[in-house]
């Protein structure tokens, strides 16, 4: 069976988390890293905006400052999310650009790579579905948002999985577009977003979520996941990239 590297749950700030993703992608593109699945958490909480978004348009910066929430721009497109510390589980897949699993086009590759979470959620007892373009839903409510970028000759695919969240905090720090609300005809975050805790109706430990997702990705991607760590080269790249991710030039570039 094909072997992938697995980087187990670590908790870090958003600049480091995004720097590590890009470092792995760059190293993978240079054939200096294997295909990789990574699990990670966020401390402090952070608002992550898509590559093409503007901080000013998406984020209440004063509120973030008051709450001690970082503002981070990622390298992939898509929309802003609040990755709260402890409440959001995140994962990254870095896979070679010529891999047959992603040969069916962009839409199909989202479906395939999101398969790990869907399988993992089913292990937890939840029936989840892929909802194009890039969401995973349970009973029609979004539980996971995902984003990809094609760069360095690889696909970097990352996404969130909500364990628990505070819709009021989300509503305070994210500016939701009027146009978008009208289109979806939904007003409240509670109506369109859900969490593992809410769906299971009980407390769920991070360990339980991690174990289910580990098994889910193994099955969906049909790979053996071997625990590993960042190479010295990747660590070095990540330290350099962290400078970029934490610089105002990058954060406020749009």
């Amino acid at each position: 069976m094909e072997v992938w590297r697995f980087l187990d749950l670590e908790e870090a700030d958003g600049y480091w988390n995004m720097a590590v993703d890009e470092a792995i992608a760059k190293a993978r593109g240079e054939e200096r890293a294997p295909n990789t699945l990574r699990f990670y958490m966020w401390r402090p909480s952070a608002v992550i905006i898509g590559f093409f978004q503007s901080v000013e348009e998406e984020v209440d910066q004063e509120e973030c400052k008051r709450q001690g929430i970082d503002i981070v721009r990622r390298i992939s497109g898509g929309g802003a999310v609040l990755n709260s510390s402890g409440g959001v589980f995140t994962y990254t897949i870095v896979i070679g650009g010529d891999d047959p699993r992603i040969a069916g086009g962009i839409m199909e590759s989202y479906r395939v790579l999101c398969g790990g979470l869907i399988e993992g959620l089913s292990i937890l007892g939840l029936k989840a579905e892929f909802k194009p373009i890039n969401d995973i839903v349970v009973k029609g409510r979004k539980i996971s948002g995902n984003a990809q970028v094609r760069k360095y000759g690889v696909v970097l695919h990352h996404g969130t999985l909500l364990i628990d969240f505070d819709p009021h905090l989300m509503a305070r720090v994210l500016r939701i577009s009027e146009e978008k609300l009208r289109d979806k005809m939904l007003k409240e975050a509670e109506e369109r977003v859900t969490t593992i805790r809410r769906e299971l109706g009980r407390e769920v430990s991070l360990r339980e979520v991690r174990d289910a997702m580990f098994e889910g990705f193994k099955r969906a991607l049909k790979v053996e996941l071997v625990p590993g760590r960042l190479s010295r080269y990747e660590e070095e790249l990540a330290r350099e990239l962290r400078e970029k991710y934490s610089s105002p030039e990058w954060i406020y570039r749009r």
């Binding site: 093409f52 978004q53 348009e57 992939s76 497109g77 929309g79 962009i106 984003a147 970028v149 760069k151």
Partner: peptide, 15 residues
């Protein structure tokens, strides 16, 4: 001119 939003574009430099 500045375009912003939650779309995806490859290559991203094109925008």
């Amino acid at each position: 001119v500045r375009f912003t939003g939650d779309f995806f574009m490859t290559p991203e430099e094109d925008l």
